[in-house]
Design a protein around this nucleic acid. Structure first.
Length: 557
RNA sequence: GGCCCUAUCGUCUAAUGGUUAGGACAUCAGCUUUUCAAGCUGGCAAUCCGGGUUCGAUUCCCGGUAGGGUCACCA
């Protein structure tokens, strides 16, 4: 096959493409950045919600770029028109926004775009891909293939039966040496075509490769004549990746390790153009335990694969980020312990600290991180976040939250601004169940649906007696210590021991101990046997409410 | 099945050719002039198996096994 024939084939196939690859190479010059700056990107396809694994690579890419004073851009990889979902781009961009991932180029936010090295949407780059594909045909490195999907299926079947490697390669590559006449002939018959890579590789050859995460690995040369351009004239990932990341000057490709096996294809294409390939870092997937096996978190099967799930549950976005950072670099935990007040963006993420195999998703760990983060928030932040979450997921409660801001702030301040703040809320969806008893209507609703049980050693009359007497006894002006001393006196007046030791020595002398009294009050006030500090709760509720509540509970035994 | 990758407590992991194999989460027990949460103290818990190299291997090499990924006109 000679050069002029290749040129003619290219022109027959793409008569309207008349720009040269040099035009584009010139149009996107080297970026003016220090040599240490990393240029990274995130390339989601708008096929649905953002996957937790996608978020993971996005965060890692963004941090690496910005920690090296580089550039992070967002590129929409929408070359699969069959799988595209309406509003998919919007969903992904708004999810990234919630995690405060700073995008330098591409779609920065729902209504802001920066097109410096763009377009950043692959479907807007058709002209570019066709120009580069035409060049490959002209230089004899690609060719049109007119095989129908059915023909390919039969070919694959036959390969399977013969137990040989399946694919379009070597002698199986039917149109590898297609002539101009054959091309014309096929075209006049109206047959569709794809453009395939004319691979010059040999599968037997092993080549050493250094991956920034996997380390030194050995890969095989690619000998597959893979599809570069689909029959709808849109590129496949392989081709788009190479052309785009070259033109956009990406220095570090951070992607899931499912791409590792097609790396030889990508390296080969870079080579055909005489371009230097970027660095690669292949991240292991986040796994889920399933019947004793591990598997990738699946969009279809696992609700927790979607970041939407975490929003709905109400995990703070920082908790999700810190959990992912912890998977990325397990020394994050130590760093967080030593720097409790720094923003997690200050943590320097290192590719060499990544684990080479996938980590099992651990909801316990997420929950633990989340509780720590929420415990550290101020009551104002608690309020804002709770309001935000309820407005989206619990409108009824949201009304109450927005109407009672001052009260909520007091409630959230219980056991908060201390050295050891309470860690009993792990996500915003738990807030309501945690504090409902501060509201009479919610409390009464709860009582009407649930049995309230007081300590077994006390009978109904005793409980009633404790409650009604305490209504008269309660003094809301005492400090915590004085209040508790006072409670002891109250206990004694009813025939209870003022401390647990006394009671344990002579249980028969007492009806119970002061702890039992506290428990009765706690249950009467909150319906719960586990609650924050009683004195603080009563202080927040206010004297009048406390007395009303005690009376209400006494009436409902 | 071919190719590639991986292998330390239940989970995430640290470490070294010589250690009582360390930490965190989870779990269990105890402590605290009121429950819980938190905190503190302690407990349980791991180097996949078999060969080599070596005075000595969890660490290096080989084999096995197990797990993961991939083999599309999807990304």
């Amino acid at each position: 096959m000679n050069k002029s024939e290749n040129k003619k084939i290219a022109n027959t196939l793409f008569p309207h493409i008349d720009s040269s690859i040099e035009k584009y190479i010139k149009k996107y010059p080297k970026r003016d950045l220090p040599t240490t700056a990393k240029i990274t990107r995130f390339g989601p396809s708008p096929t649905g919600f953002l996957h937790i694994g996608g978020l993971f690579t996005a965060i890692v890419s963004e941090r690496l770029a910005h920690q090296s004073k580089g550039v992070f851009f967002l590129r929409i990889e929408d070359t699969d028109k069959k799988r595209e979902v309406k509003d998919g781009v919007r969903g992904i961009v708004s999810a990234l926004e919630k995690f405060e991932i700073k995008i330098d180029e591409g779609i920065k936010s729902i209504d802001k775009k920066i097109n410096k090295y763009g377009p950043y949407k692959q479907s807007d780059r058709k002209e570019i891909y066709l120009t580069f594909i035409k060049y490959l045909i002209e230089t004899g490195n690609a060719y049109p293939c007119f095989c129908s999907p059915e023909e390919l299926r039969i070919k694959r079947k036959s390969q399977e039966l013969q137990k040989i490697r399946s694919g379009y390669y070597g002698e199986w590559a039917l149109h590898r040496n297609i002539t101009l006449d054959e091309v014309k002939n096929n075209l006049t018959q109206g047959r569709g075509f794809v453009i395939r890579l004319k691979s010059n590789g040999n599968e037997i050859n092993k080549i050493p490769f250094n991956d920034l995460i996997k380390g030194n690995i050995s890969i095989r040369e690619n000998d597959l004549d893979v599809v570069l351009l689909k029959s709808d004239q849109l590129p496949t990932y392989h081709f788009a990746h190479v052309v785009d990341d070259y033109l956009m000057k990406t220095t570090h490709i951070i992607r899931g390790d499912e791409w590792l096996s097609s790396l030889p294809i990508h390296l080969q294409i870079f080579d055909l153009f005489n371009w230097q390939a970027p660095y690669y870092a292949h991240i292991s997937p986040i796994l889920k335990s399933d019947n004793g096996n591990k598997r990738k978190l699946s969009k279809r099967k696992d609700t927790e694969a979607s970041v939407e799930y975490y929003f709905k549950e109400g995990y703070p976005s920082d908790a999700i980020i810190e959990y992912l950072l912890n998977i990325a670099n397990p020394n994050f935990e130590d760093w967080r312990y030593q720097n409790p007040n720094l923003l997690n963006t200050e943590f320097e993420i290192k590719l060499e600290k990544f684990n080479k195999s996938g980590a099992l998703f651990d909801i316990n760990k997420l929950s633990n991180i989340s509780k720590d983060i929420i415990a550290k928030m101020s009551e104002n932040e608690m309020y804002d976040q709770t309001l935000k979450w309820t407005l989206e997921y619990d409108l009824n409660f949201a009304k109450k939250v927005s109407k009672n801001k001052d009260y909520l702030l007091k409630i959230f301040s219980v056991e908060r601004n201390t050295d050891k703040p309470r860690k009993d809320i792990g996500k915003w969806s738990e807030v309501k169940n945690n504090i409902f008893y501060f509201f009479n209507d919610l409390f009464e609703e709860y009582i009407s649906k649930n049995m309230i049980t007081y300590p077994e050693i006390l009978n109904e009359n005793t409980v009633k007696e404790i409650l009604t007497s305490y209504i008269k006894y309660y003094n809301s002006h005492l400090s915590k210590d004085d209040w508790f001393s006072d409670l002891k006196k109250f206990a004694e007046s009813l025939g209870f021991a003022s401390n647990i030791k006394l009671y344990k020595q002579k249980p028969n002398n007492y009806k119970g101990c002061v702890g039992d009294i506290a428990m009765v009050l706690r249950i009467a006030l909150t319906s719960k046997s586990m609650a924050p500090d009683l004195h603080e709760i009563m202080h927040v509720m206010g004297e009048e409410n406390v007395k009303e509540r005690l009376q209400f509970s006494a009436n409902n035994i």
